Simulated assay, not measured.
Amino acid sequence: MKLFTYWRSQAAYRVRIALRLKGLAIEKVSLDLLKGDQFAADYQKLNPEGVVPTLIDGEARPLVQSLAILEYLDEKYPQPPLLPSELHARAHARAIAQMVAMDAHPFIVPRVRKYLEDELHVGEAARAEWVRHWLDAGSDALDQVLARDPRTGKFSVGDQVTVADICLAAHLTSAKLFGGREPSEYPTAGRIYANCMAIDAFAAEHPLRQPDAPAA
């Protein structure tokens, strides 16, 4: 199994967490998104959108989009499960995951930041504020949803890790990396984040622990 990744990619971090939770051995191939490695012809054949992650599992066609990959992994390698067993709880876990992956994250990806710089001529300070704004807005929404829902437990949906926690942890980690508010500033989301980061799969796959992360 081969994963094309980038150290700071929030989407790739989600998949790395899931792979480690399930105990799956992988070969990591690091792409430098800031240098444009994702636009190389060989990679474009795997992922024409030019983003990460891309997962190769055996001889099957490449898998793209982090949430789709998480569901694929959960169906093919069902232990430990990444979704609750109860129908409404599964929908709730997916909703939290989608708040991150579909609402907050798309605003901060490299191609958006590059468009702001190259086409709209937005300066560096304003681009940084743009990123922090959308990350913090997403964190606020997550904290409010989790605080109000009686299903919230040790983790986002009860006391077992789900896709919701994978997405929450990746989101709050990105916020820290980009200078947003600290997870501890969010009473409920921050508590869940701390519980996640106490698990090896979350800590070991942290962006700053990746081989392509910049030296401290």
Score class of each variant (00 low, 15 high):
Q38M: 02
G153V: 02
L146Q: 11
D103Y: 12
G153I: 00
E117M: 13
I26M: 10
S9H: 09
K114D: 14
A104T: 05
N195E: 12
R111A: 12
V131D: 08
A164G: 06
H121E: 13
Q38A: 08
A170P: 01
Y72H: 01
G180V: 01
Y77D: 02
T162G: 14
D57G: 08
T54D: 01
R20D: 14
A170I: 09
G123P: 03
Q10S: 15
A169V: 13
D32I: 04
D42L: 08
H88N: 10
Q65I: 02
A40G: 10
P81G: 05
P150I: 01
G58F: 10
S30E: 15
L73C: 02
A169G: 11
E205G: 06
A97S: 15
K154N: 11
L87N: 09
M1Y: 03
L120K: 15
Q44W: 03
K2V: 10
A175E: 02
P48L: 06
L3R: 09
R94Y: 12
A194V: 06
G23H: 05
E86L: 13
G179M: 13
D200E: 13
P62E: 13
A201P: 04
P187A: 00
L34T: 09
L63V: 08
R181V: 05
A203W: 11
S139D: 12
H133Q: 11
L63P: 00
Q38N: 11
V163G: 01
P207S: 03
A40V: 03
G50N: 10
V109M: 01
V51N: 04
G190C: 02
T188K: 09
D57L: 09
V29F: 01
A18L: 03
R113F: 01
S156V: 04
I166T: 10
D212G: 07
G180N: 07
A41I: 01
E49V: 14
V51F: 08
D165Y: 02
D165K: 02
Y115N: 11
D103N: 13
A215Q: 14
D143H: 05
P211L: 07
R20A: 15
V163S: 05
L146D: 13
L63M: 07
G179Y: 06
P187C: 00
Q10P: 02
V100W: 07
L116S: 07
A11Q: 10
R181G: 10
A125W: 00
H171W: 09
L142N: 07
P214W: 10
A204K: 12
D165F: 06
H92D: 12
D143C: 04
A12K: 08
P53Y: 11
E49N: 13
S66C: 13
P110K: 03
A12D: 11
P106R: 07
Y115S: 12
V122C: 09
M197L: 03
I69R: 01
H92W: 14
S156I: 00
Y77L: 05
Q38F: 04
P78Q: 05
A25F: 01
